[in-house]
Structures are given as C-alpha cells and as structure tokens.
Amino acid sequence: MKMSKIILGALAMSALLGASPSFAAEAVAVKREPWTFAGIFGTYDRNQLQRGFQVFREVCASCHGANLMAFRNLAEPGGPEFSEAQVKALAAEYEIVDPAAEGGKRPGILADRWPGTGQSEADQVAAFGIVPPDFSVLAKARGTPQSFPWFILNYFPGTAYAEGGPDYIHALLTGYEEEVPADIKNADGTPFTLPEGKYFNEYFPGHAIGMPSPMTDGQVVYAAAEDGSTVPQTVDQYSRDVSAFMMWMAEPHLVARKQAGLQVMLFLVLFAGLLYAVKRRVWSKIEH
C-alpha cells in the first residue's frame, strides 16, 4: 500500500516535471550521435577536444568569438588538457587589448579570455549582416525537437538525453546541400526557394542559413595522436570534433560535475536506506 503510494507519487512528480517538451520552430529532428560525454559516466575524449580546438581555431574563430573561454581553461583537467607550456605559448601568439599595457596591447597570458576574431562588431555587421554568434555557450543554446510522449524518457536514468546541442551542431555542419532538394516545400505547398545570399541547410530552422558551408574535406590537417592513431580528415569528422569541443566550451566542468553526482547519488541512496531502517525501528512500537 505504502510502496504503491510512493511509486504513484514519483510518477505524478515525473509527469509534472516532464511536462515541458522543447519545441522549436520548423526545426527538424536530428540524429543522435554516440558522444563520449553522454550518460552518467560520460567524459570528454581528450584527443577529440584537441582536434576540435584545432578546427575551431583554424576555421570557426576567424568569424566567431568565444568570450567566456580563458586560455587557462584549455589546460584544465577534464578538457583538452594541453600542457601549460603549450597554452602559454598559444596565448603569447595573440595580442590582447589592455589599456594598462604600454601601447595599449600586450601578448596574451593564461588568465586572458579568448581574444575574439580581431574584427569589430561594426565590421562584422558590414561583412555578414549580423554579428556571428559567440561560441561560448552555443552548444547549450541549441537543441533538437522531441516528439510527444517520448520526450519524457529524456528525464530518466538510462534514457537521459542532454546532448541535443552538439547533435544539432553536428547535423547543421553536415546538413548543407548545393541544390534545394525537390521535396522541400513551403508551408502553403509551393516549392521552397532560397533567398538571395543564403545557403540551403537541411537542419537549420527555415532551411535558409546565412553561413556558407564552412569546411571541406582535408581542410584541417590533423597530427597523429600520441599513440599514433589517426582519424579521417573529413567534414563529418571535423564537425564531430568541433561539436564536442563546443560542448566542452559551454560546459567545461561536465566531467567533474558528473563524477561528483555519482558520489552524491550513492550517498543519498545509502543514507535514505539507513534512515528508513531507523524510522521503521522507531515506528515498530506504534500500531498504525
């Protein structure tokens, strides 16, 4: 009787909590990728983050900023884990605007934030029509629509899903088409026509994206990993790597958070068990 009530309570609560599906305008559901950072034991793949950083730096960073990422983050545990010497050398390659420095500029240090694209916002608006979005938390600002009623599964252990952002970014980067596919229609059934200066992307809401396909196969040359392993130098792989890197940028402490979570959950379950035993013992003298 009591147990069934507890289960009912849990169900009622999950139903209440589960009542907020995320809807996106005209968004297309994307394929779920097997990310290493998914799940309760998820960790970032260090090599992947290092490759992703390379893609970000060589391709994305010329137009997109990342104003919340500091150079020091790149050397922190749970991230790309470059050595401190590597990151120091990297930071020194950039000029940081600092009114206190002689001449108003100085080489970057570990504590500096990512210096941005080097273009002013006004220049960017002149060149692109908008300021290209900052990447710092972009992976958490994007998602993918979930169908009713299965979105409820996203909330539970085992079927939890919090990787909609990187999945969307990966889909977007690999979702460009040279020609508008014939089966794409407007809401009123007329064939879809691409506005001037836009590019067709299957996964972008509305399909007309301002950013041209940013990468081509072989564009970024990866060095072999420490153990000698290599990955294909394709758009699909670049996109996977940079999506993972962007997730790390948005959530640099994800690994530490999940590890702490496991300990907290274990403690709570054990503590609850002990309390239940004590409670039963105390109540055993009462007829109820």
């Binding site: 507890i6 909590l17 958490k140 939890a160 919090a162 979570g261 496991l262 959950m265 709570l268 609850a272």
Partner: peptide, 27 residues
C-alpha cells in the same frame, strides 16, 4: 527520510541534467 528520498531526483537533475528543466534559448 522523505526529504532524503526527495533529494535523489533533485540531485539527479542538478548533477546530470541541470539544463533539461529550462529552455535552450535562455543560453
């Protein structure tokens, strides 16, 4: 006892799905 049991789903969200109850647009 009930508070500690209540903390289990609470901690689950805090540590494993801290953003799922909010909206992506708020990033």
């Amino acid at each position: 006892f009930a508070i500690v049991v209540f903390c289990i789903p609470f901690a689950w969200f805090v540590f494993f799905l801290p953003d799922i109850l909010g909206h992506a647009d708020n990033y």
